[in-house]
Design a protein around this nucleic acid. Structure first.
Length: 898
DNA sequence: CTTATGACTTGCAGCAAGGACG
DNA sequence: CGTCCTTGCTGCAAGTCATAAG
């Protein structure tokens, strides 16, 4: 596997990029140290040899693939349908937070919902349709090309009909579900259908019924009670979804809809879920499909719809293959679609549009007050008594003894300045150098050890206790739908840990109190009780144009806010995530022209134009970030527009060497060959400038983005990263996936994932024990090799009828026959090979972080569709949280291509 | 325009829970 | 069954980008 790299060549790119990156760790340390004067650099460079430049895509090529296959395989479709309950209603019930978790995993478990029997009934009205699916993606421009008829997606009609639900679902399910294997769960939410289209937001959410709440989360009483009305409303957001396209195109749809409609619908209809679903599981997909109505037609109408109630699934065809196989069942969904969302075009989200109608939550939770431990530090060898406030800060510092921050003068200086304010000018302690924090450090180590030693029972009890306390804060109800809150815990006080050479590192980050916090909540919702007796919130707002539940000013930089948002699995996040990927897919259709345009401007006489062209080229080819201006209060890092002359070096053969610190002070190092006009333009931009001057002196991100917007609606610099990443994944998966077992396919996926991570320069520090681990592995391999040798000797002897020699430790062995020995040899050999492979992978990935791209850059639909096509259980690729986060993508058509 | 806000996404590190291993 | 690792998840810092304000 390793060598797959070659495969991925750039198709078109003139440019080749390979980058050698520095391992992060190195850089981190090294960089930081600079200040301290160490010799920092010990960076190791990693060569990425193979990495293609980021994009190698020729613009043209990709389009070819159309998405629509009408035919999704039966299985898939079913899946899709299921998961998606797009209708809001469904969601409703489904949605419990936990609900999300259930996704169709392909595999197994179906039951959860079913079993539980949900009280709810959905109704499906229609069928759904899955088949239709593909068409949905409205977004795509591609569709434009496609005949309308083809596009259809589902009708709205179907959607609408939902009946009101009853939800009962037990709540439990939801909770319970958590325990159930993912596979078991389905996403209820998912939209249905089809691929993209649906995403209306509706999907996911289901309104919560009070009942549910009660059940599940019993504790949150407050929340629950709050909205008696069960109504679920769909949130306006949903409507937006389509908007993306809109800009461009169509708004198909007749649909009326829009939010209004949605609401109405929701209000009125709540779909019910059908219980039967379960039963259906057995039904062959094909049959089921039939049920669905097909609507096809209407181009305009768009999507949504579907709903099959249950889906089930299937079995798949393929036989055998293990894993994925199919069987997954799905749950059903009932979606109905109502969704309809309007496809219309609202301008994309964001705008000042309304984001919610009702918003209920319980506020946020504060860390416990500081508990003094009474351990004294030594000043010039003598114990010093500190007040609790002084001690608290001293402890923050003492505890960081083993970190790299201790080597940084800036860190110590900032700490000292802030601590001294607490000590007072005339305190006995007059300087940091003479302070010995060891006693506190030791005390802390002991505390840590104690904690570690607690029995698992005790730990569990503690965890449960904490859960109990936090439960009420974990959920919010948005337009009747229960949603998980992201960071409901206020950040505890501590020393600021800025990355890189941050000028404020070490400063004391003071404790946040209720009086610092602004709460945003529905007008009719009860105002959360302030968790700290005697104190009160700074302000209560009812701003329905934003999604934050609370915020406070960042104590380190008062110009910044710290927000509390819903979790990644929420509909708000899911919706915008989907919009992000749709925008990136749209870029695929424009990229050819965009490249042609900037290529033409490489030689423009207008310097601004020329700089825009070259900058765009870098962003496109190298996946650089936009590069906003930063002020002096932040670490000195750059992005494309802020590159300095010294960050780019022209080398022979039209090669440019990039070397700069990017986001999070991660080093970007890459030497690439560029087209001669670009090379010449860089020489020109550097002429008569000092190393520290801006390379693109006529540019900044707003100029660049303004220009990009002229090329494609809503296009911004970051879209290129998303596009490049997702395109690369889709392309590599398609080219490299071969027949084989699941493990092999997973390796292909990881390989593609790795290329993306390299393109995006996602690094991680090498674990401290990496080298130790490697040598341990080497040792084991050597041992196995010795065993092999011995086995071979024995085999030889056995064939000649002789008994085996004594083993090295002197023991005698069983007299095995040649066949048995051969088998053993084969096993050992396989073991050795596997270890060698693992070792290589490990070494290979020691500085590459795969997670970031998986979470933020790779369209999950690519992964889901690939898993469906190749029968790889989605759980092999996505963790539970990612499955929840990507609930909206689970029902994608197996033929989906980015 | 330019600067300042403001809101939301992206990203790495650290830690804890879960698994593999001996 | 404890130890060693790996891996997922959380925390919070650091970007992006739109828009309001000056």
């Amino acid at each position: 596997m390793l060598n797959m790299s070659h495969e991925y060549d750039d198709e078109d790119g003139p440019v080749t990029f390979k980058r050698s990156s520095v391992s992060k760790s190195t850089q981190l340390h090294s960089e930081m140290r600079k200040s301290t004067s160490h010799s920092h650099d010990g960076r190791s460079y990693r060569k990425t040899s193979d990495v293609p430049s980021s994009n190698g895509q020729s613009s043209s090529s990709h389009n070819g693939k159309v998405v629509l296959s009408a035919k999704a395989t039966a299985v898939e479709s079913s899946v899709a349908g299921i998961s998606k309950a797009s209708t809001p209603h469904l969601k409703t019930y489904i949605k419990s937070p936990s609900a999300n978790s259930k996704f169709p995993s392909l595999g197994n478990k179906k039951e959860s919902l079913l079993e539980k029997k949900i009280p709810v009934h959905v109704k499906e009205e229609n069928n759904s349709t899955k088949h239709v699916k593909n068409s949905c993606d409205d977004s795509e421009d591609e569709e434009d090309n496609i005949p309308l008829s083809a596009r259809m997606k589902m009708n709205n009609d179907n959607a609408k009909k939902a009946t009101p639900i009853v939800l009962k679902k037990s709540y439990k399910d939801s909770d319970d579900d958590d325990d159930t294997p993912l596979s078991a769960k389905f996403s209820q939410n998912t939209n249905l259908g089809k691929s993209s289209c649906n995403y209306d937001g509706s999907d996911k959410k289901k309104p919560i019924s009070n009942v549910q709440k009660g059940q599940q989360y019993g504790s949150n009483a407050s929340i629950k009670q709050e909205r008696p009305s069960t109504v679920s409303i769909k949130r306006p957001l949903d409507n937006k979804i389509d908007s993306l396209h809109s800009s461009g195109k169509k708004s198909k749809l007749s649909d009326p809809t829009s939010s209004v409609i949605a609401k109405q619908i929701s209000a009125k209809s709540e779909p019910k879920i059908e219980d039967d679903d379960d039963d259906d599981d057995d039904v062959p997909l094909s049959q089921r499909m039939k049920k669905l109505p097909v609507l096809a037609d209407k181009p305009s109408s768009m999507k949504k719809m579907t709903n099959v109630t249950k889906v089930n699934v299937t079995k798949i065809n393929k036989g055998a293959t293990p894993s994925f196989k199919k069987k997954a069942k799905f749950k059903k969904s009932g979606n109905k679609s109502e969704q309809f969302k309007s496809t219309k075009a609202l301008p994309s989200s964001g705008d000042g549009q309304t984001k919610w109608t009702t918003l209920v939550h319980n506020g946020i939770i504060f860390p416990p007050p500081y508990k003094s431990h009474g351990v004294k530090i030594l000043y010039k060898g003598k114990p010093v008594t500190l007040t609790p406030e002084q001690e608290e800060v001293a402890t923050m510092f003492a505890v960081m003894r083993d970190t790299d921050y201790m080597q940084k003068e800036k860190f110590k200086e900032n700490f000292w300045n802030d601590w001294r304010k607490l000590l007072g000018k005339n305190h006995v302690i007059q300087n940091l150098k003479d302070c010995d924090f060891t006693p506190i450090y030791d005390w802390y180590q002991i505390e840590k050890e104690k904690k570690k030693q607690m029995s698992s029972q005790e730990k569990k009890a503690l965890r449960e206790e904490k859960m109990k306390q936090e439960e009420k804060y974990m959920w919010a109800i948005v337009d009747g739908v229960k949603e998980k809150v992201g960071n409901f815990r206020v950040e505890p006080p501590g020393l600021f840990r800025g990355r890189g050479e941050h000028p404020k590192m070490g400063k004391v980050k003071r404790r946040i109190r209720p009086n610092d916090v602004i709460i945003n909540i529905g007008k009719d919702a009860p105002i959360p009780e302030c968790p700290i007796p005697g104190e009160s919130w700074k302000e209560i707002r009812h701003d329905d144009t934003v999604t934050w539940l609370a915020y406070w000013l960042d104590p380190i930089n008062p110009k910044l806010f710290k927000y509390v948002f819903l979790a990644a699995s929420s509909s708000w996040k899911g919706q915008s995530d989907k919009e992000k990927y749709e925008k990136a897919r749209m870029l695929k259709n424009y990229i050819g022209n965009i490249r042609a345009a900037y290529t033409k401007d490489f030689t423009s006489k207008d310097i601004t134009k020329q700089q825009i062209a070259v900058a765009t080229y870098f962003i496109d080819k190298l996946a650089l970030r936009a590069g906003n201006e930063k002020d002096d209060e932040e670490a000195d890092t750059v992005g494309c527009c802020t590159l300095k002359v010294e960050n780019v070096t022209a080398e022979a053969h039209n090669k440019l060497k990039f070397d700069f610190l990017g986001k999070d002070s991660i080093k970007y190092e890459n030497t690439v060959e560029v087209e001669p006009p670009v090379y010449n333009a860089i020489l020109k931009f550097q002429k008569d400038k000092s190393p520290g001057d801006d390379l693109f002196d006529k540019l900044d991100t707003s100029i660049l983005n303004a220009h990009l917007k002229e090329l494609m609606p809503n296009l911004t610099a970051k879209v290129f990263r998303t596009f490049n990443a997702s395109f690369t994944l889709d392309d590599m998966l398609n080219k490299e996936t071969k027949d084989g077992d699941v493990a092999e396919k997973v390796v292909v996926y990881q390989h593609a994932n790795k290329q993306v991570a390299i393109i995006c320069n996602h690094q991680r520090s090498v674990s401290k024990s990496h080298s130790a681990q490697m040598s341990k592995l080497t040792e084991k391999i050597d041992e196995l090799q010795a065993v092999m040798k011995e086995l071979k000797t024995d085999l030889d002897r056995a064939r000649k009828g002789k008994p085996p020699l004594k083993s090295s430790n002197g023991k005698s062995k069983h007299n095995l026959n040649p066949e048995a020995l051969e088998k053993k040899i084969a096993q050992t050999n396989a073991k050795i090979e596997k270890m060698e492979r693992d070792m290589k992978t490990k070494e290979d990935l020691k500085t590459v972080a795969l997670g970031t791209s998986k979470i933020n850059y790779l369209d999950p639909r690519i992964t889901v569709a690939w898993c469906k096509r190749h029968e790889v259980p989605i759980e092999k690729i996505f963790s539970k949280t990612l499955l929840e986060k990507f609930a909206w993508a689970m029902d994608v058509d197996p033929d989906f291509r980015f």
